[in-house]
Computed example of a mutant assay.
Amino acid sequence: MSFVDPNQFVITRRRKKYKFALFNNSPLCFEYDEWMPRSIDVLEVGAGTGLFSVELAARHPEQQFLAVDVKADRLQKGARAAEQRGLRNIWFVRARADQLGELCEAGSLSQLWVTFPDPFPRQRSSGRRLTHPHFLTQYAKLLDEGGELLLKHDDHNFFCWSLEQLVVAGWQLRGLTFDLHESERFDEESDARIMTTYEQRWVGEGKAIGFVGAGKSINRAS
């Protein structure tokens, strides 16, 4: 029988409290009910640490970015990086995916990134997947007329399931690849090639990364 040191739980709780304090003290971070909607061009849902959005914001200073995740202790890492780089075009909000409609105005986004969300492999949990039809309907309302939904994932089964949902819902698939970092369609300067925190791990383990861009169907946008 293995022995678990109770002091380890104390240390973990302290670390989480410290990270939450960093989130609460950052001028770039907001709780869902504190956020005042503003003009946003690009949103990342399920952003994790938010470092992917930070890199996008650094590349495109003319655009406004919003990174959304349910865990503040993750988002604070991206906020700290953004502050250190002097970025003033990105914010971080702790919120659920079903609250996105209250964070951004309808038809305001040019891009909406869904990066490595929980695949919820059990069929009975499919409604929680961020590419489930009810989320796709919400995304379509947030995107502008030429806007794109952009999906990256390492789980092949989840990625294929997501493609099926997009096709059934009438989205127009663009730039599809099942191995992003080996594809000749995307050069090193492509935004799609920027790696998230988790993506660096998966690529290091030799996993192929699926990527697709999708434009909403005009007939099913409302």
Rank of each mutant, 00 (worst) to 15 (best):
P27H: 03
A106G: 04
D41L: 08
Y18V: 00
N25W: 01
W161L: 13
C160I: 10
R96P: 00
Q76A: 14
L28Q: 08
P37A: 00
T49L: 03
D41N: 15
N24I: 00
I218M: 10
E184R: 14
Q99N: 08
C104L: 13
L43K: 07
A81Y: 05
W202Y: 15
V212Y: 12
Y139R: 02
A95H: 08
C29Q: 08
Q63H: 12
R94N: 02
R201G: 05
E102L: 03
R94G: 00
G215A: 12
W35M: 01
F178A: 09
Q64P: 00
S39G: 02
M36F: 12
S125M: 13
V114P: 04
E62K: 03
R96F: 07
Q63P: 00
V42H: 05
L136H: 02
G213Q: 15
F30Q: 07
A106V: 11
E105T: 10
E44Q: 06
R14Y: 06
S108L: 04
E145D: 15
V4N: 12
Q165C: 10
Q99A: 07
P37C: 02
M36R: 15
G46L: 01
R128G: 00
R122M: 09
G48I: 05
H181G: 10
G215V: 10
Q111V: 10
Q63G: 00
L176T: 05
V114C: 11
W35R: 02
R220L: 12
H156W: 11
T177I: 06
K19R: 15
V45R: 01
E182L: 03
S190Y: 02
K17D: 15
P133Y: 07
N25V: 04
R174H: 15
V42E: 15
V70N: 08
W35H: 08
V70D: 01
T49V: 00
L163C: 08
P121C: 03
C29P: 12
E199T: 11
K16H: 13
Y32R: 08
E148Q: 12
G215H: 09
R13I: 01
S125F: 09
Q99R: 09
H153R: 02
C104F: 04
D191M: 07
Q84P: 00
L75G: 01
F52K: 14
R59W: 05
E34K: 12
W35T: 01
G48K: 08
E184H: 13
S222A: 15
K17A: 13
A140R: 13
L173P: 11
S2M: 12
P61T: 11
A95T: 05
T177G: 12
E102G: 09
H134C: 01
W113M: 04
L163E: 07
D41V: 02
E55L: 05
D69I: 06
Q172I: 14
D5K: 10
F23E: 06
D118E: 10
E44K: 00
C104N: 08
F135S: 01
N89K: 07
T177E: 05
G213Y: 02
L75Q: 04
R124P: 06
P27Y: 03
L43F: 08
P133I: 03
R124C: 05
D33T: 14
P37V: 02
R13V: 04
V54Y: 01
G170S: 04
M1T: 12
Q200V: 09
E145T: 13
